[in-house]
């Protein structure tokens, strides 16, 4: 579903690259955590998938399409296949819960009748039944994030990108959000979640991709936040890894 082939992203020629020759593949329907310190390249990874930025070199394939060579008028179509959730929710404060979710459908030209059916359904999926007419400021942080998730998945994207979705939430609320993301993943959506939240990664036991200074230093299935295997310094690793796909 998402495939990086030797992707390098340089923002500033003088500084080290944000991503340095990263190659990895995330399968359809997978749930992957992207972990690593701030500045390790997690956000850059997500921006490249969304085509907010273009890779400096290498190929970024999303659903079989090379995003790097996508002409700008086709970018909206790419983004319709990707839902995004942020740490700060990014709801429209003057719109109700229903209107916030419906907005994502209105702006891509969906029919009113489809919106009337789809919005309550997706609100039910995220556990917000009966709160359609609340305003965002009347909701708790967890509920606001559920609205944001509902908005991200209402157009049934194949991929859901979550950039520290639990960063502003307390642990128990975070567990609720993770249950929602897991449910969405069970329905067949590929989920990629960048996070710092050790507890969540450890409790989910999903694939973990660890980035450090723009390199993938660990990529394990059913893993924990910190590796059980002692990590190898990136420089040595690059010399030795050669033919690794």
């Amino acid at each position: 579903m998402i495939r990086f082939e030797n992707v390098t992203k340089v923002y500033d020629r003088k500084a080290r690259p944000a991503l340095d020759s990263v190659s990895l593949e995330i399968q359809r329907g997978e749930f992957a955590f992207l972990v690593g310190a701030s500045g390790s390249g997690k956000s850059t990874f997500l921006r490249l998938v969304l085509r907010e930025d273009r890779a400096t070199s290498g190929g970024v394939f999303v659903a079989g399409q090379n995003v790097a060579s996508l002409s700008s008028w086709r970018v909206p179509r790419l983004r319709r296949g990707i839902g995004v959730v942020f740490q700060d929710f990014r709801l429209l404060p003057q719109k109700t819960v229903f209107a916030n979710v419906a907005f994502a459908m209105q702006v891509i030209g969906r029919n009113r009748s489809i919106i009337r059916d789809a919005v309550p359904e997706v609100l039910k999926t995220v556990g917000l039944e009966g709160k359609e007419h609340r305003m965002p400021h009347e909701l708790s942080g967890g509920e606001q994030q559920r609205v944001a998730i509902a908005r991200a998945v209402v157009n049934r994207p194949g991929i859901l990108l979550a950039d520290e979705p639990t960063g502003n939430l307390d642990p128990s609320t975070s567990q609720g959000i993770m249950a929602v993301l897991d449910k969405i993943n069970q329905n067949g959506t590929t989920v990629v979640m960048a996070t710092h939240d050790t507890d969540i990664v450890n409790s989910m036991r999903k694939r973990v991709i660890e980035l450090q200074d723009g390199h993938v230093i660990r990529d394990e299935a059913r893993a924990l936040y910190t590796s059980l295997i002692p990590s190898v310094p990136p420089a040595e690793r690059r010399d030795g890894e050669g033919g690794r796909a």
């Binding site: 909206p76 790419l78 983004r79 296949g81 990014r90 994502a104 702006v107 891509i108 991200a152």
Partner: peptide, 17 residues
């Protein structure tokens, strides 16, 4: 800008924005 940022993210066309 909030609205247009969300429109961009959910794949609204340039014309729509």
């Amino acid at each position: 800008r909030r609205e247009t940022a969300i429109m961009r993210l959910v794949g609204a066309s340039k014309i729509m924005i």
